[in-house]
Design a protein around this nucleic acid. Structure first.
Ligand SMILES: [Zn+2]
Ligand SMILES: [Zn+2]
Ligand SMILES: [Zn+2]
Ligand SMILES: [Zn+2]
Lengths: 144, 144
DNA sequence: GCTTGACTTCGAGTCAACTCGAAGGTGTGC
DNA sequence: GCACACCTTCGAGTTGACTCGAAGTCAAGC
């Protein structure tokens, strides 16, 4: 226990929080400056993080994974009224579902490319078809 | 028929191909310069595109949707031997499957946020739980 | 007191993937 | 011939999200 735990609920410095979460210290400072993940401050101005900051950090990571901009992340996490947040989520949902569908097509393509022997990628009808004809039936890509 | 169809199989100028595909002319030139989608050239140096260029364009779009860098797209489309391409696809597949899984979690979260009435987003256990307790390890959500 | 290491701010630099602007070539209509 | 639209290249600017460097502050160990 090298920590003096002067502030019992805020055990982590920037470096410690970075080590724990995998987010670089520079990025944590940036997120604090931008209001994405506000840090607590000691009297001397040093940043401190506590367990209560972990959920928000995970939300930031997840939102990034959705391709949200930082403005959108702030909207989700700091919307003054829940209604704005709910509206945003409702608008975002179909987009996410669409992305899932596209990724499924892409996964099929990758599965075939992994075993395809065509020299020219674009000359292989097996996966060109699935890229060019998204709606409709999906032929089995694992066949040559 | 204003087209003189001097080159019957290459009917489209940059602007025409842009109009047909929705990719801006500037981007088509950029993709040509970078070797992502090489254009054919007339004797006077002008770019021309034909139907044979459509599949490759769709592949470029799809790869972008996978979050591939341009280097990776070139690797998939121009790998000197099919083996390198196949290897890349095999390595990429699990990553894509992981992304699908994460997007499914995100979709669940969005579905709840759309109806949640908590003032403080991070205080709502219902979706915090799904974010913080994913079964197994978490792949990097950021595109790549 | 002095060194060491981690912290602070702020301004500038980096990166990918475009996107724009200037200067000039090309070709069709009148 | 000349206007005009569209093409060319090349270099520079933009955007978002970091990432770094310099200059200074703070606390512990010797
Ligand atoms: Zn906190
Ligand atoms: Zn094939
Ligand atoms: Zn072609
Ligand atoms: Zn809720």
């Amino acid at each position: 226990m090298t920590e003096p735990d002067a502030v019992p609920d805020l055990p982590w410095t920037v470096a410690a929080f970075a080590a724990r979460t995998g987010v670089p210290p520079t990025t944590l400072r940036y997120w604090d400056d931008e209001g994405l993940l506000p840090a607590h401050r000691l009297d001397n101005g040093h940043r401190r993080y506590g367990p209560d900051d972990l959920p928000r950090l995970e939300m930031v990571r997840m939102c990034q994974g959705l391709g949200c901009t930082m403005d959108e992340v702030r909207l989700v996490l700091d919307a003054p009224d829940p209604a704005a947040r709910a509206r945003f989520a409702a608008e975002k949902l179909p987009e996410v579902l669409g992305r899932i569908e596209l990724l499924r097509v892409a996964a099929d393509v990758l599965r075939h490319v992994a075993v395809c022997e065509h020299t020219d990628a674009t000359s292989c009808g097996a996966w060109m078809r699935s890229v060019l004809e998204p709606p409709g039936e999906r032929p089995d890509l694992r066949a040559g």
